[in-house]
Simulated scan of single mutants.
Amino acid sequence: MTGCGIAGVVWEHISRWYKVPPIFGFSVRDLLELHKTTKLGVVGKEAFHGIIIIACWRLWKARNEKVFDGKEVNLEEIIGDIKALGFLWFKSKHKSLGWLNWSLGFVRNRNSINQSINQSRVASAKAKEIVSTNPVVVFSKSYCPYCVSVKKLLTEAGSSFKAIELDLESDGSELQAALHEWTGQRTVPNVFIGGKHIGGCDSTTAMHQSGKLIPALTEAKAIATKS
């Protein structure tokens, strides 16, 4: 992984991709420490370190395939796997990262990537603040029939609620991505009552049919109690 010709080509490609000095090490440990010596930022070093780990694994895999299975080494396949696996790993930590920014080169696009990551953090904080400051929140889309159904159900129950129409918000896509990361739910409507995640249309309707919706709305003080 540190001295063979195939590995050398892979390390050269990665160094050009990240625009760092040529990669060289006497051992795997040297390779795993390389990110500390680069001039990349915090996020850049994190990504570079991950790519080095993935590249070491992929080179080890290629070596075993050749030795034990007689499979010829395919450099294009190795480099493609490193980029693809690196993207999946990094995107699992930074949801807003797009493939185009990643595949064109992290350093070349680091400002765009950092901006996307910051937008994701801002959206997450905004979504959580909305939920924490309103008894009932429906993250919705104005054209969605399931959202219309949930809002109608809440209205008929006499509940006040705050509806956030994601398709009408300038940061709607970022908010939806933040909600997906937070709740695991990608779709709308996305309903919260008393700060608790309820789910979508089916979950809210089922809650009503089981007789649990009105008590939850009352406890959250979304329904005015009669004096």
Rank of each mutant, 00 (worst) to 15 (best):
W11R: 09
H13G: 03
I14F: 04
Y18I: 07
V20K: 07
F24K: 15
F24T: 14
S27K: 08
H35L: 03
L40C: 07
V42R: 15
V42S: 15
K45P: 11
H49F: 11
G50N: 14
I51Y: 11
I51L: 10
I53L: 13
C56Q: 07
C56T: 12
A62L: 08
F68A: 02
D69H: 10
E72W: 00
E77Y: 10
E77Q: 13
L85E: 15
F87N: 07
W89Y: 11
S112K: 11
I117C: 03
N118S: 10
A123E: 09
A125D: 13
E129A: 14
E129I: 02
V131N: 07
S132H: 09
T133N: 13
T133H: 12
P135M: 02
P135Y: 03
F139W: 08
S140W: 05
V150A: 02
S159K: 00
S160I: 01
K162L: 15
A163C: 09
A163N: 02
E165C: 06
E169D: 12
S170I: 09
G172Q: 03
Q176M: 05
Q176D: 07
H180W: 10
H180R: 12
E181G: 13
V191L: 05
V191I: 14
F192G: 02
G194Y: 07
K196S: 14
G199V: 05
G200N: 02
G200E: 07
S203Q: 15
H208L: 08
H208V: 00
H208Q: 15
L213Y: 00
P215H: 05
K221I: 01
K226A: 04
